[in-house]
């Protein structure tokens, strides 16, 4: 049996069926991400594992034991919430020490462990400060230290970076991943941000309306989305009906959906000589996105997005006639 095993989990809130017969395995030491839009059930599954929500039916196994009916206090889950949830009347050290105090650990040992953990998250100098004097990022690191210091069986991160600004968020993503690898702790990370999921995960479980749409490594999730939903959620796939694309490009794909990423599309002013599907089109829009420019091209009646490296010397103007080329092997046929 896997380290964490969800078995036919169903969860209802009133008549709302939030988790639909989910069966899932998670191996020890992995950082696994539950990815999906708001209301898809990802946080609820995390809360079911922690015991903060009861499952309507099904079983949850953690480290080989059935914990479905075990109280949250005894499950051995450490959790970090979106809103930090630090205890405002306690200092950083008291917050981190809280779980150890509950375990009735000797004071000297608590102090050593708290100092060690604050070193790990880089907040040793904030030992005696209150949470209100810390930035959002620092508060979240205290919350992480508080969850980790008790050496939980599993670390649960419920959108912990959502309330933090973009730059700090990127640093914290790397920081959390580093700590997780150093400690080798099994971690479940909930996010609605696909970039965050890509950066942090060993494995991604993509949620859709209470079910798991696809489970895969970040690379596979990005390059081989299993469905139209996965393709639309991961990356910025061009998703077209095969009929419409065949008509525009003169190809013969069987019916269904076709998907291809914007960065595999080439644009040129002259007809390319390489072996690829080539369609003549007109640039309809042009938006710079940092190191790339995203073009929207009307290609023979179908609208395509193409991401091209930002080079000032080769910018295509709106209204310009261009050739769009797509290598056949890069087009995915979806159900």
């Amino acid at each position: 049996m896997a380290y964490i095993h969800f078995e036919h989990i169903n969860k209802y809130f009133g008549t709302n069926h939030v988790l639909k017969d989910i069966t899932l395995d998670i191996e020890q030491g992995e950082l696994v991400t539950f990815l999906g839009p708001s209301g898809c059930g990802k946080s609820t599954l995390l809360r079911c594992l922690s015991g903060l929500e009861e499952v309507t039916s099904g079983k949850i196994f953690l480290d080989g034991k059935d914990v479905t009916e075990v109280s949250p206090r005894k499950r051995g889950c450490g959790m970090v919430f979106q809103q930090y949830s630090l205890f405002p009347n306690m200092t950083v050290a008291q917050n981190v020490a809280f779980g150890l105090k509950m375990q009735k650990m000797p004071k000297a040992q608590i102090e050593t462990k708290v100092r060690e953990m604050l070193d790990v998250v880089g907040l040793s100098e904030k030992y005696d400060q209150y949470p209100r004097s810390l930035s959002g990022g620092q508060q979240q690191r205290v919350a992480l230290a508080r969850a980790l210091v008790v050496e939980p069986k599993v670390l649960l991160l419920d959108e912990p970076l959502s309330a933090i600004d973009a730059l700090l968020r990127k640093n914290l993503q790397i920081e959390i991943r580093r700590i997780q690898r150093d400690l080798g702790i099994t971690t479940l990370f909930v996010t609605h941000d696909q970039d965050e999921a890509m950066v942090m995960s060993d494995k991604i479980h993509l949620f859709n309306m209470g079910t798991i749409e696809q489970s895969a490594s970040p690379v596979d999730m990005y390059t081989k989305p299993a469905s139209k939903y996965a393709a639309s959620f991961i990356g910025h796939y061009n998703i077209l009906q095969a009929d419409a694309f065949n008509k525009a490009a003169g190809t013969e794909y069987s019916s269904g959906c076709l998907a291809f990423r914007p960065e595999i599309i080439g644009i040129s002013r002259t007809e390319p000589e390489e072996e690829a599907i080539v369609i003549k089109g007109t640039v309809r829009n042009q938006i710079p996105h940092g190191n790339i420019v995203r073009y929207t091209i009307d290609a023979n009646g179908v609208e395509l997005d193409a991401d091209i490296l930002f080079e000032a010397s080769s910018i295509f103007e709106i209204g310009e006639q261009v050739y769009v080329s797509i290598k056949d092997g890069n087009i995915l046929e979806l159900e």
């Binding site: 922690s50 015991g51 903060l52 949250p72 206090r73 499950r75 889950c77 450490g78 959790m79 919430f81 809103q83 949830s85 205890f87 405002p88 009347n89 306690m90 809280f98 779980g99 509950m102 375990q103 919350a143 508080r146 969850a147 008790v150």
Partner: peptide, 25 residues
Amino acid sequence: KQIVEAAELLGASGIYTFFRIIVPN
């Protein structure tokens, strides 16, 4: 609510959390 949940996961009882965390705040 979230503070109580955080305390509960760290092993604190409801009464302990109420008197040591909620009331002081």
